[in-house]
C-alpha cells in the first residue's frame, strides 16, 4: 500500500516537472523581442558624444554599449525609407560623414514619418556596434529603435 503511494507521488512529481519544463521550453522558444519603447535606457547621451567615444576606443566602447538600450539625442541628418518601407533615422553632426544610424522598429514607423531633417530628436535603440569606414565615415548602429516620445 505504502509502495503504491510512493509510486503515485513519484509519477505525479515527474508529470509536474515534465509539464513545467514543456511550458518553459514553449515560452522560451516563442519568446519575441521586448518593445524598445517599454525599455529603460541603460545610457543616455548625445549622438556626437557616442560617436566620439567609439572613435576613441572602439573595443572598450563596444564592450560598454553593445546589446544595451541607449537613448541618443541628436540632430536629424536624414530619414531614409528603403524600398520595403523600413525607416532609418540618421543622427549626428551634419558636417561629418559619421553618424548614429537608428533602424526603426517597424511597429513604430509611424512615429518617424513626420520627422524633419535638421530637427533635434531622441531615439532609443539597442546598440549593435560600430561600423568603422575611412571612406564612408564610421557609424554607430542601433537596431529596433523607437523615437523617445517622452521628450
Amino acid at each position: 500500500m505504502k509502495r503504491k503511494k510512493i509510486i503515485r507521488y513519484v509519477l505525479l512529481s515527474l508529470l509536474l516537472i515534465g509539464g513545467t519544463s514543456a511550458i518553459y521550453i514553449y515560452k522560451e522558444y516563442n519568446r519575441t523581442h521586448k518593445d524598445t519603447a517599454r525599455l529603460k535606457p541603460v545610457y543616455s547621451l548625445t549622438a556626437t558624444d557616442l560617436e566620439k567615444e567609439f572613435e576613441g576606443n572602439e573595443t572598450a566602447t563596444t564592450q560598454k554599449y553593445a546589446d544595451k538600450v541607449l537613448r541618443v539625442e541628436g540632430i536629424v541628418k536624414e530619414v531614409v525609407k528603403d524600398d520595403k518601407g523600413f525607416y532609418t533615422v540618421v543622427l549626428g553632426d551634419t558636417l561629418s560623414m559619421s553618424s548614429v544610424r537608428c533602424s526603426i522598429d517597424s511597429l513604430h514607423s509611424k512615429d518617424v514619418m513626420e520627422v524633419k531633417k535638421g530637427t533635434t530628436l531622441a531615439v532609443k535603440g539597442i546598440c549593435s556596434g560600430f561600423n568603422a569606414d575611412e571612406m564612408l565615415g564610421s557609424d554607430v548602429i542601433l537596431i529596433r529603435s523607437v523615437v523617445d516620445l517622452k521628450n
Partner: peptide, 16 residues
C-alpha cells in the same frame, strides 16, 4: 561590403 553581425535581426529572440 561590411555588416555588423549584431545588426542581424531575427523574429524570435532565442534564435537571435
Amino acid at each position: 561590403f561590411a555588416a555588423l553581425m549584431k545588426g542581424f535581426a531575427f523574429e524570435r529572440a532565442l534564435m537571435e
